[in-house]
Nucleic acid binder design. Structure first.
Lengths: 336, 336
DNA sequence: TGTTAGACTGAAAGTGCTTTCAGAAAAATT
DNA sequence: AATTTTTCTGAAAGCACTTTCAGTCTAACA
């Protein structure tokens, strides 16, 4: 059993180096204000004891935690993860810690939203792909919690939006240019959880809109709404491809769902892209691996951006609110 | 501009309800020890003010943070993410917060390891797929930081191990049973970063071992070591499949790399599984989507388990150390 | 009616740091 | 040499809680 030596405090360092605790603190936080002789002696003591300031104590005294939180739908979907990755990379550069609050129910979300700003546990908050009530947004804003929303917006909070409508346009334009006449759509149009975001509707709308403008149409019978799960998406894809006259091009509202369409096609011996074109949405990492044509929404970038906005606002809180619209981009690969 | 009303403290509540702050604390932390009349009055005041105890203050007073940290290679690989998911789900049940420390360099790791246990910023630590020096492990243990290692072990810390050797066996057995005679291997055998783990070597060793036992062999020319990136893996796969007499079965050390092999095969019009069998390792989510035969290592489960062990040790620190070996399982899908 | 056990409650100490303020010492100026 | 300025340092307040300890009040008991 190792000797559980309790870790040294600033007082121990003070005693060892023969100065007061204030001087220790000064050596650490304003080294230029202390005599170089004293500085050296203190640093020696610090090294000798292996002293590191307790984070909580520091946080209390400074009333800042150097920690930012991310509220995210329980991270199942790779797209959330990739955003998170962007956030993490920006924070790690700035020496901020990253706390994750996974949300898997409305209650959960409410609980977080009402306690987080008051606990003062984090210096800033990023809310990913979750819809906030006006009241919740107010609460965050009123309590002075710096916040950036991703995929959602509110006049009093920073936000980063994806132009899903435009995404639909891009897909339609691309497929039209490839000469397709008959289309299908598959996506999680009406997520059962009311706290999540519905970008899929907009993607569909953009898609049909642009098709319509070109004199083409997407019959309701070719629109399949299905939950995000692999199981159910696969079933929907089977149905869609099993139609008497299946479409020659399918737009799946997310890359993961596009994978299920590809799987269904493979099993039915439908050749992609010869007999069937498939377009996804997100451009997650695997999209490149499976050569999927998709709409890139710069997931990493959106996360990084959110973190950067947050940090800049934490630094100077009189910076103006930012509302950013991220550009989308169609990435053509082998499935179209 | 909203009135930036600073959030109420325990003192405000005390004043409003006409009792001392100790009573407020008691209402919150030991409700049965306070008169029900007083209790009600205090609760009213709390509700009225919307009081929530400041987490840092609480943490300082209790010297526990209700927060656990995960040290992970900067989360690029889906397998890390899936572990993380398991951790998150266990923690969220137990009402613990999850802090992520992404590691992308040796320095980074060293910095974390030496400061984390002393900052007392978290109650426990999970170290995922990172190799710790004996000294580092000692430091964690000596400073009383409860720790669980995943994919690595040390006598003084809890650990969860994957039997990679056995994984190699499973793959060999499976491919042999399918009648294959000529094999290839592709994986990140020697990661350049010394701080990460080398499970790939063991997988390869198990693979060749079992092949050898069956009188079969894996020639060195069929072993390709390549970094994890999609780009380089793809190149290696191209070379392997471009050999004059390419193998009929390839074992890729991770699912993501198996995807690159599949991509290469597709581009060369090599039919899977007819002309080529492919086996991956990990069983990440996408494996099912692309119908990849692989070795399941229960990623979610390993994370969840780690979290549970940690929490139980935090609860009662005299619980014995645990060293767990996770079972592997071959999942047969369409690529073999 | 006097006692005493039991239930509540408030004062105060503890938690480990930062920062302000004022004073002491040293250095620079006249 | 006297005065002013500058540089350093220590004391102490503050940060917002929890918890122990001792004391007060009530109610029950003799």
């Amino acid at each position: 059993m190792p000797t559980q030596k309790k870790s040294p405090t600033i007082y121990d360092v003070a005693k060892l180096s023969g100065v007061s605790i204030s001087t220790i603190s000064r050596v650490l936080n304003a080294p230029d204000k202390v005599n170089s002789e004293t500085h050296k002696r203190v640093m020696n003591a610090i090294d000798q004891l292996g002293f590191i300031p307790r984070a909580e104590a520091r946080a209390r005294a400074l009333s800042k935690t150097n920690r930012i939180g991310v509220l995210t739908p329980f991270f199942t979907a790779p797209s959330f993860v990739q955003r998170l990755r962007g956030v993490a990379s920006a924070l790690s550069k700035a020496n901020y810690e990253l706390v994750i609050y996974p949300v898997d129910s409305m209650d959960h979300l409410q609980g977080y939203i009402s306690s987080i700003p008051l606990m003062r546990n984090i210096d800033g908050l990023i809310v990913m792909s979750l819809s906030l009530s006006d009241q919740d947004a107010q609460r965050l804003s009123n309590n002075g919690m710096e916040t950036v929303l991703i995929e959602y917006s509110h006049p009093q909070l920073n936000s980063i939006l994806i132009d899903d409508l435009r995404g639909g346009h891009l897909v339609a334009e691309h497929l039209i240019s490839k000469g397709h006449k008959s289309f299908g759509f598959l996506g999680d149009i009406e997520p059962p959880e009311r706290f999540t975001i519905h970008p899929v509707k907009s993607r569909l709308m953009g898609f049909t809109q642009r098709l319509g403008e070109a004199g083409l149409s997407l019959p309701d019978s070719h629109i399949f709404s299905c939950p995000y799960t692999q199981e159910e998406t696969k079933q929907a894809a089977d149905k869609l491809l099993g139609l008497p006259k299946p479409p020659t091009a399918i737009f799946a509202a997310s890359d993961m769902q596009a994978l299920s369409v590809m799987k269904a096609a493979r099993q039915m011996n439908i050749r992609v892209p010869n007999d069937l074109a498939i377009v996804g949405f997100d451009d997650i990492d695997v999209a490149e691996h499976v050569d999927l044509t998709t709409v890139r929404q710069h997931l990493d970038e959106s996360g990084r951006l959110a973190a950067e906005i947050l940090l800049s606002r934490i630094g100077e809180s009189n910076r103006p609110l930012q509302h950013i619209n991220l550009r989308l981009q169609l990435i053509e690969r082998m499935t179209t």
